[in-house]
Design a protein around this nucleic acid. Structure first.
Length: 327
DNA sequence: AAAGGCGGCAACCGCATCACG
DNA sequence: CCGTGATGCGGTTGCCGCCTT
């Protein structure tokens, strides 16, 4: 296994340091020297030991292969469990993980993780990075777009005002259907959504001040201000039937619409054609998923007819870098 | 039986961090 | 505090051997 010894370039062995696989002779030289003198300065070691290698190469060879306390051979189930557990906490901190497995090196654990354990977790439907049930990002794209919108709404702290304006628009059929139809153009969705969040409702608010006034005075036919309908209530309308399913089983449809958008009626009913990201019910997870914790998740709690539940989306879904990459 | 593909793993590379003058 | 060299760390590379066709 591994590399063949690399021949020195251009025949100048005195200058070129050897690279590639170590020969048994080199191993013996290194072992002999360290046993007698200790490694001391790794940079100076090859010269003293008569090795035509760089100090770094000597150090790696010693720490990863020649050290007498190294445990060779297959990883036990206990070791595997420990690696899995530590990786769920520490991530790719191989040296820290190795410190908890006597006789194993960080390099060995890293290789074992990448070649065995990662695949095993993937087969189990667990994301080897997050240690949570895998999410099919492609299927969840529309949901992620929706999340981006929600995040922007929350970030700008104009949620109540904007929703109220939407509500007014719905009641008066002031073009919400065309507004919502614009969201069909997925590539432009984010930018348009941002514009929508930042500008459009406020402009409309001004244009519809009269209607707003009526609403505030109770003269409107509006029965429930939209800002009293929490976003999560809208989201969960689609999840009521199946929110215990695994994350990421979207149906591929990708827009939300006003169900009556094609008509001239004044319905205020908004329906999401696509299920929102399947939230993970932590109360279910804790009993059915033994793959890891959800401590990094983003929790949304909601009281409702079915009682109080707690749901999680992975925190990374809300990060700008993730959204930038996937939108 | 031969060839190509793929998995496994030792070793390398480059960046980060530490230690010291 | 800064510069420099040593060491540590994580990601990547490249070769061998096994497996599949």
């Amino acid at each position: 296994m591994g590399r063949l010894p690399t021949a020195p370039k251009s025949g100048d062995e005195s200058k070129e340091l050897r690279k590639g696989a170590w020969t048994p002779e080199e191993d013996q030289q290194l072992i002999h020297y360290i046993q007698n003198h200790g490694h001391g300065s790794w940079r100076a070691l090859p010269k003293h030991a008569g090795l035509n290698r760089c100090g770094k190469s000597c150090r790696l060879r010693w720490t990863n292969y020649l050290r007498p306390d190294i445990k060779r051979g297959k990883f036990s189930q206990q070791e595997e469990d420990l690696i899995n557990h530590l990786h769920s906490i520490l991530g790719n901190k191989w040296s820290t993980i190795a410190a908890n497995l006597p006789g194993r090196t960080d390099n060995e654990i890293k290789n074992y993780w990448n070649t065995h354990m990662k695949k095993k977790l993937l087969h189990m439907g667990i994301d080897p990075v997050t240690h949570q049930p895998r999410t099919n990002l492609y299927n969840c794209l529309p949901q992620l777009l929706a999340l981006a919108n929600i995040k922007e709404l929350l970030d700008h702290n104009q949620l109540a005002q904007n929703l109220q304006c939407i509500n007014l628009m719905l009641q008066t059929n002031t073009g919400l259907s065309s507004l919502l139809d614009r969201t069909n153009a997925l590539p432009q969705l984010q930018e348009q959504s941002l514009n929508f969040v930042n500008d459009f409702p406020l402009q409309l608010c001004q244009e519809n001040k009269e209607m707003e006034q009526q609403f505030l005075m109770g003269n409107s036919s509006i029965t429930q201000p939209l800002h009293e309908v929490s976003i999560i209530n809208i989201l969960q309308a689609n999840n009521e039937d199946d929110h215990h399913e695994e994350v990421g089983h979207g149906n591929g449809q990708s827009r939300f619409t006003n169900v009556n958008s094609s008509s001239s009626t004044t319905s205020s009913s908004i329906t999401w054609n696509t299920p929102i990201p399947q939230l993970i019910d932590t109360t279910t997870i804790t009993t059915t998923n033994n793959s890891g914790s959800l401590e990094n998740g983003s929790t949304i709690s909601s009281g409702g007819d079915g009682g109080i539940s707690s749901y999680n989306w992975p925190e990374f879904l809300f990060e700008d870098s993730f959204l930038d990459q996937n939108l």
